[in-house]
Design a protein around this nucleic acid. Structure first.
Lengths: 261, 261
DNA sequence: CGAACCCTTGACAGAAATCAACTAAGGTGG
DNA sequence: CCACCTTAGTTGATTTCTGTCAAGGGTTCG
């Protein structure tokens, strides 16, 4: 594995504080692989043999049942996913597929478990990471159960532009995928988006432009207890963020929120 | 605190493997309190000062937004809840209220964090617990996003009778609460329940009777990746289960699935 | 006994899914 | 270079599902 990648992984909150030797052990057993777009990396129900780390590209976590599919999250560099299944040595509850050409590091879950048995610092980091992942799913569930489609979309748009000076952004994924994440059909998303024209947001292709933030907020009623204090997981992490991650400050860090297990 | 309670807490997966001294430290700083029914123990947004352990009674975890409320889980003895917020020293994402006369042990989260800094075994147990909690929420989210109300209700009924010889069970909470957990209004639940008469389940007061399991399964399409391999969190844990908890076997244990953080 | 509350039922409205048709963009192969 | 094909996205018509509003029955509890 290249030094650049190793140092990027090393800087992740999950791996940052562990002993050099532990890290070396993990990485020695790890695979570095590049996959083409739309390749399924993980099928739900399979046993969790590897912790995955996205180095380049992006990965969709989704769940299936009968004929339905729903997007649970999109993971971007540099983040881990499916930590929880690895820890419990249990079947994956979500499937994963690449959205583009994607490089992933695969860490055998047996090594993972062995290392955090031995390395207390790593165990502590794992706790923090898992707690963040947990809170991230709780937020998603609250979003789905408490808001309707229109409110969810409005809230999503506000999240995407929360910390930026700009009043517009590019939807970082296919709209069908965004629809699935928001829990609606693509047709509904299209209509809902249109209905927000009168509520402070218009759309032009992949670009969403906020025309009236106040109005939009009146629809979305954004809340830190749902939308999080900062970054979120559906593609906020467009910019590379492996280097300067926010430290844990009592609020969710972008790093942790972005990595799902 | 009484010896009986202490030993019950000690037997929880979360506390089972830690050093005697660590456990003593935690418990020395803890409060044992009994609350009347329908008292709010936790308000979402507040800072997470205490890990809660339900000793007797039951506690509802719910989330609010605008005028809406939704039930996220019901916690029964002996289980912990709101672990994740305590770990991250972050605001609670859910509120909690007693559903009946309830005894709760409150462990200061500062002590909690101090102890798992020092006690590796406790850190390991925390990891396992958190991973289980995470998977539990993921299941709930999948249930909500992938199934419609009828399918969710059918699946719930099947879960409740999965391991029992009996073809009937008593709904362990108010129906309005079950409705909220399933993500529908009480009116909808009532109608949906009625519609299941032709699908293998009828209701008589608080009792649900399965008349045709096969038909019901054809509606619910139960899946271990949504419904879990064993116990679940909406009141399966009617029977006391603090003593003989299932060990972690690579599948979710009732203990872990029942305790939410 | 009366007040509250839960549950149910009915009538209706609104939200979202489904089905179908159409457009536009991108890629392929002749 | 262009006809052809595929696919994402949109739009319209319609159905289905679920929420809302209102009313009544039953229960509990003061």
């Amino acid at each position: 594995m290249r030094d650049l990648e190793l140092s990027q992984v090393r800087r992740l909150p999950l791996f940052r504080s562990m002993a050099d030797q532990s890290f070396a052990t993990l990485m020695r057993a790890a695979y570095d692989q590049t996959f083409p777009a739309y390749l399924r990396l993980i099928e739900e129900g399979a046993s969790a043999d590897f912790l995955h780390i996205v180095m380049e590209g992006s990965v969709e976590l989704y769940a299936s049942w009968q004929d339905h599919e729903t997007t649970m999250a999109v993971v971007r560099p540099v983040s881990t996913f499916i930590l929880a299944a690895c820890i419990r040595d249990a079947p994956y509850l979500m499937s994963a597929r690449t959205l583009e050409n994607t490089r992933v590091i695969l860490v055998p879950s047996v090594d993972l478990r062995a290392v955090f048995q031995a390395d207390h610092e790593f165990a502590m980091a794992t706790i923090t990471e898992l707690a963040a992942c947990y809170r991230s799913v709780v937020r998603h569930t609250k979003d789905i159960k408490l808001r309707n489609a229109r409110e969810r979309l409005a809230a999503y748009i506000l999240r995407k532009t929360r910390d930026s000076k700009s009043a517009s952004f590019i939807i970082p994924v296919e709209k069908r995928l965004l629809a699935s994440y928001l829990g609606v059909t693509p047709e509904s998303l299209s209509r809902t988006m249109k209905s927000l024209q009168d509520a402070g947001a218009k759309v032009d292709g992949q670009r969403v432009i906020i025309t009236n933030r106040k109005t939009l907020e009146a629809v979305a009623h954004p809340s830190p207890l749902i939308d999080g204090p900062d970054c979120e997981d559906m593609g906020t992490c467009l910019a590379f963020q492996g280097v300067a991650r926010g430290e844990e400050t009592g609020i969710e860090s972008p790093a942790s929120a972005g990595s799902k297990s």
